[in-house]
Amino acid sequence: MSNIVGKKSGLVWAVHISVFVLVALWLMPTIGLFVSSFRTADQIATSGWWNSLFAQEQNLILRTAAPSTQREEGGVFVIDGNIFSQNGSSVTAAISAWGTSSRAISDFQPGDTAPLGDGAEVTLQENGDYRIESPTEITGSRGERLFITAEVPPEFTLQNYDTVLLSGSSTDSMARAFFNTLTVTIPATIIPIVIAAFAAYALAWMQFPGRALLIAAVVALLVVPLQLALIPLLRLHLEIGIGKGYLGVWLAHTGFGLPLAIYLLRNYMVGLPRDIIECAKVDGATDFQIFTRIILPLSFPALASFAIFQFLWTWNDLLVAKVFLIDATGETTVMTNQIVELLGTRGGNWEILATAAFVSIALPLLVFLFMQRYLVRGLLAGSVKGG
């Protein structure tokens, strides 16, 4: 009775639950990075992204208006305003305690009046409104510093993306690095596919001496670490005049990606129906015509599958870019290296780092989501042969 038609076994439900858990674990860091990219530095420092929709208690250090804004009322010098708007915040928080010293940040309650010295006093309300009164003219170039404990409502901002994408600063902007990465990734994905497609067809359907040895060599190259070839290849580039630049990194990615590309495409092509190719040859078609008009259209899933692998690898690459591309001026800096630079120059600005990291993974995510069906079909290449 356990195999009744229409009744799912417990194993099927276990598989579904396992897939759901794996997807959730994969999505959770991405969602967290996305949410953090819209949060302010204070919110990231005081609470996790999962609390972003709830008000959080924060300790803030804010300044009143500068003494240059004071006015005289009945022989008393007055400075007033709102402590939150004074510091560039559009959110009004509910103050629960405040103080005038870092040693006593909660000595006073909203509505209390605290002495500032020289007869001056400050009164702070729950909504952030303050009033400073002094019998003498207030001097100095900066406002008074107040330590505030407040219940801050959720706040999201686009300022992080403005800084990362539109800033003219070479240390913060990811815009140039984004286009540099595209300049590296697109050719480094297309060139290996073109070369590997021709080679895979030859190894799958053309008879010539040494074909088996070439197939064995391709398989052997799959297990060779690319780190072994980095320095010798760079020396070769320098000797022949390529140097460090886009051409060098394109050739490097092409060489490192060809073994997997040839292996994947050859396995797929060899599984295509032999009858189609033999009929084409009987009709007088050349190998080039068979390749362009029959093999390539039928091999699109495998081509797309490798394109995803190669695109993701070159987009997320740092090692090859460091060796073959990075220059002293930063004109050809890619996104992975730019994030490393941000870690060094803006290590405390987690909101900038979170935004830069999400910008760097946004395009690979879109590529993967829109082409994942081809990835699955390509991974199954050669598992089922045509009749």
Rank of each mutant, 00 (worst) to 15 (best):
A94P: 04
A197N: 07
N337C: 11
E278M: 01
M335T: 08
I61F: 13
M371C: 02
A321I: 10
R131E: 00
V184D: 12
E239C: 10
N316R: 14
I61E: 13
L325C: 12
L303R: 06
G81F: 09
G117A: 00
I191Q: 07
L251E: 01
T286H: 09
W250L: 05
R63I: 07
F84S: 01
I186G: 01
I290V: 11
N160W: 03
A177W: 11
A94E: 10
I326W: 15
V152Q: 06
M28R: 01
S173L: 04
N316I: 08
E72W: 04
I193R: 13
H237Y: 15
L258D: 01
V23D: 03
I17P: 03
W313R: 12
V219M: 14
M371D: 00
T100G: 00
T345V: 14
N51F: 08
L369Q: 12
I191H: 08
W50F: 02
Q289W: 03
S101T: 05
V376E: 09
N127E: 12
A177Q: 01
T181R: 15
L260T: 02
W350M: 08
L233N: 01
V5K: 14
L260W: 05
F77G: 02
P187W: 04
E133L: 12
F208M: 05
L296H: 02
P273Y: 04
K244H: 12
A188Y: 07
A197V: 14
T185P: 10
L325S: 06
T292R: 15
L22H: 01
V122W: 14
D80Q: 13
A196T: 03
Q58P: 15
R176G: 07
L366Q: 03
A212V: 06
V340K: 14
Q86C: 05
P209C: 13
R176Q: 12
A302N: 02
W26R: 07
V367P: 07
Y130P: 10
L380M: 11
S52A: 08
E351N: 08
I240L: 02
S2C: 10
G284K: 02
L272P: 05
V270Y: 06
A356S: 14
V340T: 12
V23R: 05
G32D: 03
P153T: 02
E351M: 06
Q70R: 05
I191C: 07
A114T: 09
A381N: 10
F34Q: 03
L222V: 02
T185I: 08
I83H: 00
A114W: 02
V270K: 12
V218S: 06
V249R: 09
G255N: 04
T333A: 10
N51K: 12
T92A: 06
R145C: 06
F34Y: 08
I277T: 06
L124R: 04
P301Q: 13
R103M: 08
L303P: 04
I105C: 03
L319W: 07
T136S: 10
G119L: 09
L33R: 00
F178D: 08
N87F: 09
G88C: 00
P301T: 00
T329F: 14
